[in-house]
Design a protein around this nucleic acid. Structure first.
Lengths: 136, 136
DNA sequence: AACACGCTCATACTAAAGTACCAAAAGCAT
DNA sequence: ATGCTTTTGGTACTTTAGTATGAGCGTGTT
């Protein structure tokens, strides 16, 4: 929001500069005024597109920030969240166990806890729920 | 793309209209010219944001179009693709069977075919691969 | 120190998932 | 009609997944 204010401030200044130019050097020529109008139009068109992309990027980042908060809200431990991510990568319990240097039993325990906390019946459902909660 | 051309045509016309207005009714007054400049700036700022959103939506739809092409490329039949989507929704074979009014045996056959065609070992991996291919 | 909590691991099951192979009915194109 | 693919269904079996329960270990809290 602060950036937006700064950007608008810059825009106002540049607009004023254009006013000055039009007043003191180009006012007598009608064609030049049309040119200035065109320039202003194009510039602000580009600025509009730029601002829109910025805001969209902020939204995307915003989704990323929500992650950890919701993970805490679900009371998922670090390890459980870690296992959940590996599940979403399509790994089996054995593969996850090897990747995290623990036994398959341990992974099964973690998976069961994840399923309970996400209120899922299967690991595939856990993936779906986690993506709905934008945790992945 | 055709829409973009139409929109730009409309913009050019409105710009010309502003020129006419400025020429025949407001040219003598400096303050009014500034006002017109401001209006043009704001209008094109809004137009820029609007166009950007449009283009982003088109990209989103574009990804959607690629879907069917890649599904065909993978030689996935309609039914197999249908099953694949239900898998990604976190449903079990039995639940998919009930939803599509067939037996679990049939779903198992479809699932096996999907796994072979997606080169996946598990249904969770199939989900991951399908999302990478932007098929879901 | 005592306690809660997270991580680890195990055993013993039950339940899904997945494989292999086969086969019949339906839809489609030549 | 004859072939080809899809869809459907079955049997039999192996492999993962998931549940239930218990237990040891380390860490931070009270």
């Amino acid at each position: 929001m602060k950036r937006t204010i700064l950007i608008f401030g810059g825009l106002a200044l540049s607009l004023l500069l254009l006013f000055q130019i039009s007043k003191y050097s180009l006012l007598s020529n009608d064609l030049e005024i049309e040119g200035i109008l065109a320039i202003v139009a194009v510039v602000f068109l580009i600025v509009g597109i730029y601002l829109n992309k910025k805001s969209l990027h902020k939204e995307a980042l915003g989704e990323g920030e929500i992650d950890l908060k919701k993970v805490e809200a679900l009371e998922l431990s670090k390890r459980e969240y870690e296992v959940l991510m590996q599940i979403s990568m399509g790994l089996s319990n054995k593969e996850i166990a090897d990747k995290l240097f623990v036994t398959e039993s341990t992974i099964k325990t973690h998976v069961s806890n994840v399923l309970i906390k996400l209120k899922a019946k299967r690991r595939t459902q856990a993936i779906q729920i986690a993506k709905e909660l934008k945790i992945l």
